[in-house]
Amino acid sequence: MSKQIYRKHLALYKHINNAWIFSELLKPDLEEKSKKLCNSTSSAKKPYKTPKKLGWVNNKRRDKEIGALFQSQLDRGMYETNIVSLVSRVEAFIQDCISIVACAHPQKLKILADKGGVPVDLVLENENRDDLIKRFVAIKCEGLMFSKPKEYLDKASKVISIELDSETIENYIEIKASRDLVIHGYGKMNAIYLEKAGRKARGALGETLEVDREYFRNVIVKLKALSAEFQKQTEAKYQ
């Protein structure tokens, strides 16, 4: 089990590092194009092909408008996109860790199961015991991700029999709260974000959440720390 989780950890580490490498490689090109287009003296609207239901259509934009698009990506857009993607990858990693341990130790299924136990139709659809366990764990893991980060991290810790550092948990919760705000709140801090992030909140009600290169760097470091904790503790527990 520890080897399986170690491989998942390495894959996640690589994905996280790749996100940073790509953004750093992209940054100079965005800066160059943004500067060139924003300083353009042309007032002509140039055509840009965009998709429609059947074929393509031309949308016209001035150089300065396109330059502003590049600048918005440089300022925060590419970091927001990466953070949304990375949180999803970390959630998948957590599910993988739960699944690996729960499938190897079926007695841990009671931690995942609710009062209703295993649904009858699931039993009838899976005659093979191993297939039944895998399917049940997969369903429970998927559902678990709809709960609060603190709850699914606590559940993961119980299933895997590890104890995550409280600071690592709080850091991840803030990152997840920032990700949710980017998707659902246009980056403007609201009461929901402040409640989720708690003492790790990065501003006050109504302020725009900072999502720049420095914050993205911190996200990279903190997500790698979470992955490393899972790996190190499971290695110590199950080697």
Rank of each mutant, 00 (worst) to 15 (best):
N190I: 08
V118R: 10
A92V: 12
N59K: 06
L144P: 03
S43Y: 01
K176Y: 12
Y186S: 15
R76H: 11
I133L: 12
I192Q: 09
I169M: 05
D63M: 08
E174D: 07
E174Q: 11
C97A: 14
A204E: 15
F136T: 08
D130L: 14
V118K: 11
M189A: 05
D154A: 07
K134T: 12
K224P: 04
P149D: 10
T81Q: 14
R7E: 05
V84W: 07
K222W: 06
H15D: 11
A113S: 15
F230P: 01
D75S: 02
I162G: 02
Y48M: 12
I175K: 00
I175T: 03
E151S: 09
P47W: 11
Q239N: 14
K188E: 09
Q107W: 04
E125H: 00
K232T: 12
H15V: 13
R213E: 09
S161M: 04
S85M: 10
G203K: 03
I139Y: 02
A156P: 04
C97D: 03
I169S: 00
D75K: 13
Q231A: 15
V57T: 06
S88K: 10
S178K: 09
E170V: 05
R61G: 08
I5E: 05
M78S: 06
A204S: 15
D96Y: 12
L109S: 07
Q107P: 02
Y152I: 12
K237H: 08
S166C: 03
E31V: 10
F93E: 02
L109W: 04
L164C: 08
D154N: 08
L124I: 09
G117R: 06
Q73V: 11
